[in-house]
Nucleic acid binder design. Structure first.
Lengths: 222, 222
DNA sequence: TAGATTGTTAATCGATTAACAATC
DNA sequence: TAGATTGTTAATCGATTAACAATC
């Protein structure tokens, strides 16, 4: 059950690609039952060898001479990413970004369930969140909630200037993973996982590639 | 004025880091006028050598024996990323994600101005966007608008299943850059720049690192 | 001049690709 | 068995790091 991958074989790039493979496979699921590395590579804008190498890092999922079963591969990748079960997450910050995440269950995707939302603004506290059966709670109760409910994943959607302070508190409370939606780069000497999903940074990257078309030789600049 | 960097020296990673350096420097601007590569590296969770290498790819911005001027470095990086001037962008899709972007000018950050918003839903068309002086337009007018106004950058925040079709049309209309907020991986044989900013993919990555703490040896898994 | 820190050239490390053996 | 396509081992390529020369 508990698969063991070697640290030297799993890189950040591979994990990022895994999430992309999954997206492609989900699109494909209704249309065709099987796929080979060549076609998957085309859709990923990469090479067939990389597809096979990536997948084989985690196990032998294909059938030689044939290819991969789309549905089986989806299940494998979901299992690798730990989204075959439902993971509880909480959201801190109910501003524009927070609201978008809270009001749109699609945004989180399969495997994640939003169980609580916190904000420090008294005008927002107590507001009902559409579709989910929860209300915005007072941010001052947040750490208590985390410890009581053993929350392991937090989406941080607060003002950038408070991000570092709040993150420190979260880690102290035992949080293992933070999705950082703020423009602030979090400094964490602990072993908490942090992934940045700040839109403005992405837009800046994009703009660089736009104004320097001659530099986008390589295929991948996600 | 027009700086020329060699393609072999500029990688996607460097550009991504550039946007992060900028964020750190902006935080720092009010607090201290100068910084050296050692301190900047600490805040970035990387090494001083990498900081210097990254920056020197684009020019000589530092003073030997001293370090870098925070404000000058900010200006340089903004210039490299092309956000020292205002770039017009349009938004396609006024659902939860689109609304979040349109209603929150902060989200785009410096250097970008939202000039038009499109949606195909007749209930949304005509709606006034708070703070910006624009209304949601009919998506059917979108391509015409792009061609007329020479729009080069589009934020795509529509349903994943339409993403590929719309992207093809955008490229045909001369769009140079797409910020893809959808969960769909866009296949583009043209030389349009695309950067993905799908939140659910990031959350999946994050979850992998959470459940495999022994694999997060390296510092950087953004 | 001595001390500090940058920018660059060379060495190492890691990730991608090529070649091929395994097997359906 | 022949054809196809996977999974893996070895070779190449690119990115990071180390060493050091430049210079404030």
């Amino acid at each position: 059950m508990t698969k063991k991958y070697s640290p030297k074989d799993v890189s950040g790039r591979i994990v990022a690609r895994l999430a992309l493979y999954l997206g492609i496979l989900k699109d494909l699921e209704k249309v065709q039952p099987e796929i080979n590395s060549i076609e998957l590579a085309q859709r990923m804008n990469t090479t067939a060898v990389q597809v096979r190498k990536d997948l084989s890092t985690f196990g032998e999922f294909g059938v030689r001479g044939k290819g991969y079963s789309v549905s089986a591969l989806i299940r494998e990748i979901e299992s690798i990413l730990g989204i075959d079960k439902e993971n509880e997450v909480i959201l801190i910050g109910y501003g524009h970004v927070g609201k978008m995440i809270a009001c749109n269950t699609n945004v989180l995707g399969k495997g994640f369930k939003l169980t609580a939302v916190f904000d420090k603004d008294s005008r927002k506290i107590g507001k009902e969140i559409p579709n989910l059966n929860i209300k915005v709670s007072d941010a001052s109760k947040c750490l208590e909630y985390i410890e009581k409910n053993k929350v392991h994943t937090v989406i941080l959607a607060i003002n950038a200037e408070y991000a570092q302070v709040v993150a420190n508190q979260l880690i102290h409370s035992g949080v293992e993973a933070i999705l950082n939606m703020t423009a602030s780069k979090l400094e964490l000497n602990s072993n908490t996982a942090v992934v940045n999903a700040d839109i403005s940074a992405k837009l800046k990257e994009l703009n660089f590639w736009r104004i320097n078309p001659e530099l986008r030789g390589g295929i991948n600049f996600d």
